[in-house]
Design a protein around this nucleic acid. Structure first.
Lengths: 220, 220
DNA sequence: TTTAATTTTTAACATCGTTTAAATCTTGTG
DNA sequence: CACAAGATTTAAACGATGTTAAAAATTAAA
């Protein structure tokens, strides 16, 4: 981007426009992070951003559009945090994945909490389509289970699909409980890992199973 | 209750009052069951019940009060469905519990879905207090795990507390997914049981573990 | 029947998301 | 530099929502 972006000349006008748009969005994030998802009122938002309500409509849109942008942002960051993990032990693979997510959330806990609530509210996590967040999140876990079967750490008495789906469920439940404020981020991590290790232990070869159960006992 | 209930004489007035109150509440249930939780508008509700809005306020109260009564009802029915189960095999105990809940939900699926959303919305399922729904729901599961340990079906490498809590999590996740319309009641049952059996298998003695994993494979 | 208490209703208020039309500002041009 | 055209912001309003105050109607008691 040197001077213009495809027929969008950089002028005093468009620069100001972009700046105001950014201000509105960052204020929207700050608002739902500090006051909660329900507290996002358009008049409040406009006041804090130093504009009037119709300007918000002009630069971004109504409430659904604002939330859509925030959710889009959430999705992008989740995708980035779900890149493959390489480790020798199966439990380390899954631990690294969950730790990565917990670290991401910890950078702005209130914001991610609110964003997940907004996402839940707009059906972001539906399980029907094969291209949604759900499907794209489960697949890497199924792959990891398949790898664990190949290396003999999982016995394969339960299919990789079933195991991967169940492991994703353990993470989702802990995330939802954290999102709803039932416990903090450290407990989120402990709860998610407890569930995952327990699932894995059900189909793990004996020495791995022992280690998994031992690690579960650490999360009291 | 012969003629009166502690200074509440049965007269034409109070009889009518009780009848109208009941009509309003049943219409409220029908409304959120058919149109969803968000569709409960006080003017709509008053119209359907054949009264005006301030009458609703007089006989019951505002929106929070209406939802509180509906939730109270939900809680009572959940308590009833969670009475102890006696069975020889541990998997049968947990299966019976979940089947009982699924059967309850199937009697008025839309209503229970909406009631759970309302309950979630008002923090009904918090995990902090020791007297809330959460604590009262986990305890019977912990007890069942302890019994399974005594009978030798569970080895006790994982504490009954951790196992019971995890099993309750499996049920909660499946219930939430069903509540949000991600899948139907049959899948709710299958998903919940898959999770529960997998957890149990992690700490089950060998023959029991084999049976549990076999049952998991049936839920494809 | 008349009076007092209770219950219902009419009418309004505050707040929310949203939109229309007027006012203001920016930009390119004579 | 001034000015018309276009883009942008704003003031003001609309419809819908939860909620409430005061008047009207109804019921119970004397």
């Amino acid at each position: 981007m040197t001077q213009e972006t495809l027929n969008q000349p950089i002028s005093a006008r468009s620069a100001n426009k972009a700046k105001r748009r950014a201000t509105i969005l960052s204020e929207a994030r700050r608002l739902i992070a500090t006051e909660g998802f329900e507290a996002l009122k358009l008049r409040d938002l406009a006041d804090r951003a130093g504009v009037t309500v119709p300007t918000v409509y002009n630069l971004i849109g109504g409430k659904p559009e604002i939330l859509a942008i925030i959710i889009e942002d959430l999705v992008a960051q989740l995708e980035a945090a779900q890149q493959p993990v390489v480790a020798a032990n199966t439990d380390d693979v899954f631990e690294a994945r969950i730790t990565r997510l917990a670290d991401l959330f910890s950078t702005d806990e209130d914001y991610y909490r609110a964003a997940f609530i907004a996402g839940d509210h707009s059906g972001l996590f539906e399980q029907e389509t094969n291209t949604g967040i759900f499907a794209r999140s489960v697949q890497p876990l199924i792959d990891a289970c398949q790898a664990a079967q190949k290396s003999g750490q999982l016995l394969g008495h339960v299919s990789a699909e079933q195991m991967g789906r169940q492991i994703y469920g353990c993470y989702r439940l802990a995330r939802q409980d954290w999102t709803h404020g039932y416990f903090d981020l450290a407990t989120f991590r402990a709860q998610a890992l407890t569930g995952v290790f327990l699932c894995l232990a059900a189909d793990a070869e004996e020495p791995v199973r022992q280690r998994l159960l031992e690690r579960v006992r650490d999360f009291v």
